[in-house]
Design a protein around this nucleic acid. Structure first.
Lengths: 197, 197
DNA sequence: TCAGGCTCATTAACACTGTTAACTGTACAC
DNA sequence: GTGTACAGTTAACAGTGTTAATGAGCCTGA
């Protein structure tokens, strides 16, 4: 056919292109609109090429999910270094959670299988999720050094409160303005942290 | 072809069959496995028949979602009649929320677009959701008669806490046993209610 | 009796989806 | 040259939501 010119792209470059294209489509049209063919077209390849980088859509989504948890974990560690007061630490981490969901909703959605995003790989198998949990538990422990059991319970409560408000705010953002939701979120998380003393 | 015998089924019967089949498939194989053709086959009709009852998959899912919210609202009103103490009322309603999500997960999933369930009709457009909200706000108001603004805020907090714990427990139910999660849920909701006094 | 219309349900098709087998072409080694 | 490995393609399969066109049966009116 044609001469098919200049396509010297590194392996890493193409891989990153696939991931960022998937996220872009998800952000603009929602996860249910993300298809292998659409990704391939965007990076100017045919569909089977995608399968040389990820063997299946599942694996691609799982990689993106992991990226999200890893990003979160990095942010948490940044806060750990920045502050020493456990109360401040936990509160700041809560705020990061909100900002993350707000600015990268497509990541948050695939992490929790929200709004049409669906990755059947169990999220609890992710090492990154495990790491995030350990980090938060560490903070809570430095707060109130109790038994492991109690710490996990408090972590679960913190996580649920944060996730619940974020998930609902995301779904209802057209009926309840986000600014208002954010204020409620900050207040609730602040109270949760105070209650720990 | 053949004589195609006995198929005298009422309109209502077929409609109910479509809905219950969709729910059954969702419960057994997850929402991402629910297809119009599969539903049609199960009720022994061809696919286009489904479109005479629901014009599109969206509409079908939205109907099921509404069914869920209506069921919840009915249960809430049952509690309203059963108890007069606002504290008891709110706590009991919290427990209903948990039992509902536990025993009819496929309904809970489609109501909040969880785990592959996806209905693009905005959930906040549902009258049934509005009704549920009003009911809970009424209970909270009988608790602490404050301004409408404050009531809505408390409602949002209660909702988020409940939904967050349920959603996480559903996702993590293979790694954290449900019994343990339920205990934490009851305890957290009890504390929330107490804090309102 | 026969034609028309109404109702119920079907078949066939379109444009998609994820996924895979088979193929083509190019570059390099011997 | 011949062979081989690599990069990327086309074509196909089975499945999806959705809709237009078609058919079969039955009741009514002439």
């Amino acid at each position: 056919m044609e001469t098919l010119e200049r396509k010297p792209r590194s392996h890493e470059h193409v891989r990153a292109g696939i991931i960022s294209t998937a996220k872009k489509i998800a952000r603009q049209e929602g996860w249910q609109a993300v298809s292998i063919r659409k990704i391939a077209e965007a990076i100017e390849y045919s569909a089977p090429v995608v399968y040389e980088y990820f063997d299946g859509k599942e694996v691609l989504l799982n990689a993106i999910r992991d990226e999200g948890f890893t990003y979160l974990n990095d942010q948490y560690h940044r806060i750990m270094k920045l502050y020493r007061d456990p109360e401040k630490r936990l509160y700041e981490i809560s705020l990061i959670q909100w900002d993350f969901a707000l600015h990268q909703p497509e990541l948050y959605q695939v992490m929790y299988n929200l709004e049409g995003a669906y990755c059947s790989v169990p999220v609890y198998q992710s090492d990154a999720l495990q790491a995030v949990g350990d980090t938060v538990c560490e903070i809570i422990f430095s707060f109130i050094p109790k038994a492991k059991e109690s710490i996990r319970r408090l972590y679960f409560e913190w996580w649920a409160l944060s996730h619940g408000m974020i998930a609902l705010a995301m779904t209802m953002q057209d009926v309840q303005l986000l600014e208002q939701s954010e204020q409620t979120y900050r207040e609730s998380m602040r109270q949760f942290v105070r209650r720990l003393r």
